[in-house]
Amino acid sequence: MLLRRRHGGTATTVKRSLADRENVLGAALLAPALAYVLLLVGVPFVLAIVLSFSTATAGSLSFGWAGFANYRAILADPIFRRALANTAIVTIGSQVLVVVLATAAAQVFRAAFHGKRTARFVLLLPWAVPVSLAAIAWTWIFDSTFSVINWTLKVGGLLHGWLYWLGDPTLALVAIIIVQAWRIFPFATVIVLAGLSSIPQEVVEAAIVDGAGFWRRLFHVELPLLLPVVAVAVLFGVVYTATDLGVVYILTGGGPANTTHVLPTLAFQRGIQGADLGQGAAIAVFLLPFLIVVAIAMLRLARHTEVGTT
């Protein structure tokens, strides 16, 4: 009893510093992150939704309520519908390519070979190059006259006509998919590599002793165990690709004849260049359900296949 009272006495007399008051400290440490999310993500997000219901234009401070007029207008617009489809095609196409290439590359990089460090550095380069610079380089690779792809195919005897990469709607979409895949690929490879190294070595060895060959090990042991990690890579890839403005803007500018627009480029064209903020915002808001569905699907997949360690 005496001991307790004495202990209580000292506790009240010792001044408690900020670092000891956990609820205050916790709030203080969280504040910057919270401010960032609220001011730089939350506010623009709400603003975009509000703008999409308005008649606001760039260069004017007037704000009129438009109701669903902007949405009705864009839904009736074939260019918008094309852009919506393109966003899905580019995102899905590039991510399929990324998953296949990244899984293969991760297998290569897992093996020990001469010059592995250099190769890994080169692999990561596309990730480090600014999107705009890379896209400009790619415009030359796909150039109607100087395309190295065409020249290489021609010399190899595989091409008899000529491919107008950025001049043909289908080829232009293919070009966009290639560049988007190229951009995400290094990141995905690194993630898959990390996932591979998290698979217990003994499990892989057990599969070897159990008589499983390379493909059986890959499809029945390694890939199922990698699935949660690959899902994360795809989730990131989808978000990066679906929201990307730079690649399409620089490569095709939405052309030829507005056939390769994706939602971000169309929103930019209508909202900023065309000064119709309301319609631009409405187009951008269409990304939201798309990304929400993808995010929920991926997280569910990741949780579903979550595996306990043995």
Partner: peptide
């Protein structure tokens, strides 16, 4: 024609 049991059992978790 061998079979092996590992220390961690190395069961396939999935």
């Amino acid at each position: 024609g061998i079979a092996m049991v590992f220390q961690s059992y190395a069961l396939y978790p999935h």
